[in-house]
Amino acid sequence: MSATVGGTSSHRPRSRGRGAHLALGRRGEELAARYLTDRGLVVLSRNWRCREGELDIIATDRTTLVVCEVKTRSGPRFGEPAEAVTEDKQARIRRITSRWLSEFGVGWCPIRFDVLAVDCSPGRAPTVRHIPGAF
């Protein structure tokens, strides 16, 4: 499933470095959260951190807890965004999800792990490709 988000592309500087990388990631997560809420999901947490790492977005469709890993790219230079969700990353996300469930006192519930691949290529409207049940 893929969608254009936000109408027109916004102009952003082409600066490189950690700051630009972090800004791109924040923009991708904002677009991903909007994408999910536009489709009826309720976002419960964003950028939840523990000592093992971070969960980008935790949402629910009112029957399933949906843990979303957001990967954003500004072009094809580093490959498809979803390719960055390696088996190690998947295992870490599962472990951190257990901590989130414990922290918020959530008992057993169905859980789905999704990937949202956001493309913010310059000169084009950003797109979100949603991969439900990616892992």
Rank of each mutant, 00 (worst) to 15 (best):
M1C: 11
S2K: 13
A3W: 05
G6Q: 03
G6F: 00
G6M: 04
G7D: 12
G7K: 11
T8E: 12
S9A: 15
S9E: 13
S10C: 08
R12D: 13
P13A: 15
R14S: 14
S15K: 11
S15E: 13
R16W: 01
R16F: 00
R16L: 12
G17R: 13
G19F: 02
A20M: 05
L22F: 01
L22P: 00
A23Y: 00
A23C: 01
A23L: 13
L24R: 15
L24D: 08
G25V: 00
G25C: 02
R26D: 14
R27D: 13
E30A: 14
A32I: 00
A33Q: 01
R34N: 08
R34F: 02
R34M: 09
T37N: 02
R39T: 03
V42Y: 06
V42L: 12
V42F: 06
V43N: 06
V43C: 07
R46L: 10
R46G: 14
R46D: 09
N47I: 04
W48S: 02
C50G: 11
E52L: 13
G53N: 06
E54C: 09
E54K: 01
L55P: 05
L55W: 07
D56S: 11
I58P: 01
A59F: 04
A59H: 03
A59D: 01
D61G: 01
R62W: 15
T63L: 13
T64S: 06
T64R: 14
V66F: 09
V67H: 08
V70Y: 09
V70W: 05
R73W: 09
S74W: 11
S74T: 08
G75W: 06
R77I: 06
P81D: 10
A82V: 11
A82N: 04
A82P: 02
E83S: 14
V85N: 06
V85R: 02
T86I: 03
T86E: 10
T86D: 11
D88M: 10
Q90S: 14
I93N: 11
I93R: 05
R94W: 01
T97Y: 10
S98R: 15
W100Y: 15
W100Q: 03
W100R: 04
W100S: 03
F104L: 02
G105H: 12
G105P: 07
G105W: 08
V106W: 07
V106F: 10
W108L: 09
W108N: 10
W108S: 13
P110H: 15
I111S: 05
R112V: 10
F113P: 03
D114E: 08
D114I: 00
D114T: 01
D114K: 00
D114H: 00
L116F: 08
A117T: 06
A117C: 10
V118C: 09
D119E: 12
D119Q: 09
C120P: 03
S121A: 15
S121G: 11
P122N: 10
P122H: 07
G123Q: 06
R124A: 14
A125M: 03
A125C: 08
P126N: 10
T127F: 06
T127L: 04
T127E: 08
T127V: 09
V128H: 06
R129Q: 14
H130A: 15
H130N: 09
H130M: 05
H130Y: 10
P132F: 12
G133T: 07
